[in-house]
Every structure is written in structure tokens, then in C-alpha cells.
Amino acid sequence: MAIIEAKQLSKYYGKVRALHKVDLSVEAGDIYGFIGPNGAGKTTLIRLLLGILRADAGAAHVFNQDAWHHAVSIHKRIAYVPGDVKLWPNMTGGEVIDILTSFNGHDNSKKKQELIETFDLDPTKKCRSYSKGNRQKVALIAAFASDAELFILDEPTSGLDPLMERLFQEHIQALKAENKTVFLRSHILREVETLCDKVSIIRQGEIIESGALKDLRHLRATEVEIESKHPIADLEKIPSVSNVEKSGCHVRLHIDSAHIGALIKHIASSEVLSFHSTPPTLEQLFMRHYERDE
């Protein structure tokens, strides 16, 4: 079942194209990563899904309900953590957590207490004195303490230290075990890589790449480094090989993973000393798109 379904979703601010004909589908139990450079339309998309912005064209459905018209009933089943958490300056963190979770109608004081301890938050301090990281913790605890089915997280770890980041990842994995759905926007590609099953890359308001991370890798060339006793000839004849750098018996090239078998056959006779193949990292995927047509 699709938890989030966007079809031809578009949003324009005057002449500025914030989001253009975006299609997106997040299934139940997915940990879905969402990445893209600054100003690509990520926040706009999240706000459209939350029904706090209205689409100019297309439709966004969450739990099979229209995100704008049924915002209230959708929000009863989701938890949201914004990238830049702002809280009421004259209330304590503990109060804010209680207030935020109370809207979803559950009393999770035990869970809240556990989370406060694991995330090491002082809930008695006024929010005005919290640092960015601590405000983030407040929002995260409020989110994890709720019984939501869908978690929309907008760069949730941007103010956290590495230790807290790891704690966060553990909690996300626990959510996955409970078959909850997570929609995660992140700048930290390593985080997306470890956590997410599926990824979408957005750029200038359009989704330019989307799918399971392992499928995306197949789309991109694998980098191969070979050292052999004899120089290898005719490498360019193997399908999909590109970027060949040769220096004597040392070769570096890019090849689609589908054709690695052909490459291995070709080099078999050249007395290979070492063979290194590196699948593309998300960062490389990302940078490729980022740098394209610039």
C-alpha cells in the first residue's frame, strides 16, 4: 500500500518554479530518503505533503487521503520533525514534548521518559536557552514518543553530535522493525545510505532519479582499478566502458555493473595482479547530478 503518493505535483511562487510535476510513491514500511541541493524544492515538497502549502497542480495523497483537504485526519497518524526546530521560548522542553504529543491523543509518558534519558535532554530548561541540537532533540523525542505510522523528518540530525546521530539511526531502524514508514530528508548522504531502502534525488523542482538504492547503483558506472603483468588492449571495445586511464600495466576505468562479466573475461589472459571494483556511492550519484549542466 502506498503511504505517500504524489502525482504531477507542482508548486510555483510567482514565476519561481519550486516544484514541477513531481511523481513520488512511498510504500508502507519504507525508509525513504530524499536528497537534493539547496533550493531544489525539498522543503516545499514536505510542506505540500503536510498540507500546509496548497499545490498549484497535481495531487498529493497521504494514507490515500488528499494532503490539503484532509490534513487534520492525516496529521493524527504522522509525526513531523522540521529542520530548524523553533519552540516557545518561555516553556520548558518537557512541557513542549507533552503539548506536542497531547495533540495526537496518546499518553506516552513512559516512552517519553525513556527517550529523554537516552537522548540525554534536560527537560526542565526553558526552550529559549536550548541550543539548536537540544531543540532538535525536543522535536525528535516528541516524534518518537508518538504512535505515528508515518514519520516525516526534515534534516532531523543537522544539529546533533555524532553520538546522538547514531542514537537517531538506531531509533529509525527500530521504527523499520515495527513496519513504520519514514520519509527522511537529509544532507548527510552517509546517513541516507545506511538507513534508506529507497531514494529520490530532486533538483530544480524536479525528481531526476528515484528508486531503490541498489537499482540506482546499477544505473551508474562502477569504478574499476586493475593491475596486471601485461598491458591490456582493446578495453574500449567492451560495452559501456568509459573514462579509461592507462599508465602501463595500471588501468582505471568506469563500467556499468551489468558488463563486469565481459570485462573479467577480457582481462583473464593478462595475468591480473589486483582487481578493485568500487560501486558508486550515493555521494557520487548526487554529485553527478549536482554538477550536471553547470
Binding site: R47, L50, I52, A71, V72, S73, H75, K76, I78, Y80, P82, V85, K86, L87, L100, F103, N104, A139, I152
Partner: peptide, 9 residues
Amino acid sequence: EMIRALPVG
């Protein structure tokens, strides 16, 4: 923004 993400009209 946080408030509007809650079940709030």
C-alpha cells in the same frame, strides 16, 4: 510550522 504538522485545522 510545527503546530500545523499536528492534527490542527
